[in-house]
Design a protein around this nucleic acid. Structure first.
Lengths: 146, 146
DNA sequence: GTGCTTGCAAAGCATTTGCAAGTTA
DNA sequence: TAACTTGCAAATGCTTTGCAAGCAC
């Protein structure tokens, strides 16, 4: 989740990235910004379908793909064969659960700062970096209280 | 690629992990250990088909899946929707090319040691770690000499 | 001999594509 | 109005599954 943005801010950001403003794009980007859960295309579709019944799953896929290709959002590969999306572009690490196929942020500032510093001034010969993907794979453990 | 292993070493390792020794398993694990390229199931199949024409692609998938579920090898998600495999279980970082869908090792000892040290004594509450996946996404740049 | 593994073909599922109709700038 | 975007349905492509025959132990 990234901080709450009002409709104007959303629209401005989409324009900045060269997108025509459509209801679908605004709704999809807004949904992704609000979500804490790094949703899949299908999850976004399911949430929005309630409010916009005419929305198509193919549009959600196309929109998320164009967003990520222009660098507005980032793709995350899940442990199953699904792709999740994240509006938070900062260098940070994910926890990926093999059992639930869910993705959480690993909130560890020390690690984020360390990685950021490491890559800040660094380039890789013959490679143009466009994104980082740091994941810890494993299993969410149930606590007794649940 | 991990260091060359003779047939006996391969077999011993497979047994250690509780696998029955079949020609297919030995060939698949050997192929993966020799490969520098983090191949997909299909790439492994294509390489082995020449020598073992009766080999089935489904067997390659099943075998790689059981290897990775027992922790003998590791899965890597590519930038397209394919899964690649790696016999090198050490903490290391991959370069993933969006254009060629190829995966290379990012050979940087400083980074590997840093990550290893960071996670050596660290645990995450309510999460059982089984693997790490660190990737740098981008594009391999052509050099003029190519 | 028993239980695990293989190969085949079919099925499954996430994602992409083609195109006519609708919408944005 | 011109170019881009949407929604639908069909297609694609990677991966999994069911099952009979084969093999390891």
């Amino acid at each position: 989740m990234i901080q709450r943005q009002n409709p104007n801010e959303l629209a401005t950001k989409l324009k900045q990235y060269g997108f025509r403003l459509t209801h679908q794009r605004i709704a999809i980007y807004n949904e992704l910004c609000q979500s804490k859960e790094h949703p899949t295309a299908e999850a976004i579709y399911d949430s929005l379908k309630v409010v916009y019944p005419e929305l198509s799953l193919a549009t959600v896929y196309k929109t998320l793909d164009s967003f990520s290709r222009k660098g507005l959002i980032r793709k995350i590969k899940g442990s199953d064969n699904s792709t999740h999306f994240d509006a938070d572009l900062s260098i940070h690490t994910h926890l990926i659960c093999n059992k639930t196929n869910s993705i959480l942020d690993y909130e560890n500032n020390e690690l984020s700062v360390m990685l950021e510093n490491f890559f800040k001034e660094r380039s890789i010969s013959n490679f143009r970096i466009s994104d980082f993907q740091f994941s810890i794979i494993g299993e969410i453990e149930k606590t007794e209280s649940t």
